[in-house]
Design a protein around this nucleic acid. Sequence first.
DNA 1: GTAACAAAATTCGTGGGACGAACTACTGCC
DNA 2: GGCAGTAGTTCGTCCCACGAATTTTGTTAC
Lengths: 154, 154
Amino acid sequence: MSKQVDGQIGTVAALVRSTFLVNAVYADSAREYGLTQQQGQLLCVLMAQPYGMSELGAVLRLAKSSLTGLVDRSERNGLVQRKPDPEDSRAVRVALTRQGAKLADEFYTETCRRIEELTSGFAAEERETLAALLGRVVMDNKVPTVFLEPGPTR
Amino acid sequence: MSKQVDGQIGTVAALVRSTFLVNAVYADSAREYGLTQQQGQLLCVLMAQPYGMSELGAVLRLAKSSLTGLVDRSERNGLVQRKPDPEDSRAVRVALTRQGAKLADEFYTETCRRIEELTSGFAAEERETLAALLGRVVMDNKVPTVFLEPGPTR
DNA sequence: GTAACAAAATTCGTGGGACGAACTACTGCC
DNA sequence: GGCAGTAGTTCGTCCCACGAATTTTGTTAC
């Protein structure tokens, strides 16, 4: 059943192991900016726009009580800011502070650089094929935008 | 510089977002077997063979003190076992218990199933291409075997 | 053979992360 | 006005991760 030519890795193992790799790179990068992986992820999500707590929970797949803590710590570190939602006084909008935006940008850029390096041995065409296929995985499974498209340095 | 056709995701974002997805699937699967993601990972690594603590730290990218705790908890739950290394009385070999092996197997199988489903919309050929490319990423970056090849149902 | 060094693990203390259950405050509806 | 539901927080619990310090054992050099 498993279509495995010798020396070649199966799809499942390839996905799991590359996930392990990307995770490690992401965490290392975060660490160098004084962030945990989760805090880095929060910043990256907020780069796109401010979110309410509930929305954020959905995007990051966190229980609301988990999120309160994460936002608390990030706020304490001056990276994000809770602002009252003008339309709903129960709700809150979480946004990057100026300092948070700056750090997010640096972290994001450096992380992109490192992730890109993982395919440094690839030809442009191969990289495109990989992007297309993984892109389909992402789309088919409705993965939220936890990471923006690399900026238009185009 | 970034070769991005409209509507298509870039390589970096595709890698990060699919990583997020696989992580979530892995964690969910673990949870249903009463495991944390880390404990699940430990079991999967030990499916291949027993390891010493230091080796294990290298494979899982954990500081030794982190590992002690993880193995402690897993041992307390009856999943793994520390045995003295016959060749080096400082060292320890961590292995699955019978119960741990059983659970590992179930968790592994179910996780494989779920991960495979992520590409359920793919043609066999596409899946192979993806596996080949991600396999190269894994090889080029020397990712340890944190997940076995799906079993030889041979 | 013993002193000096290196390696394998553990312990301890700290802080982050995740969750469910219970709670508060507000909205929206009838 | 009353009431169900929603947005967030609090609290208690456990897990995870780390560095620094420590213990025990192996190794090397003399």
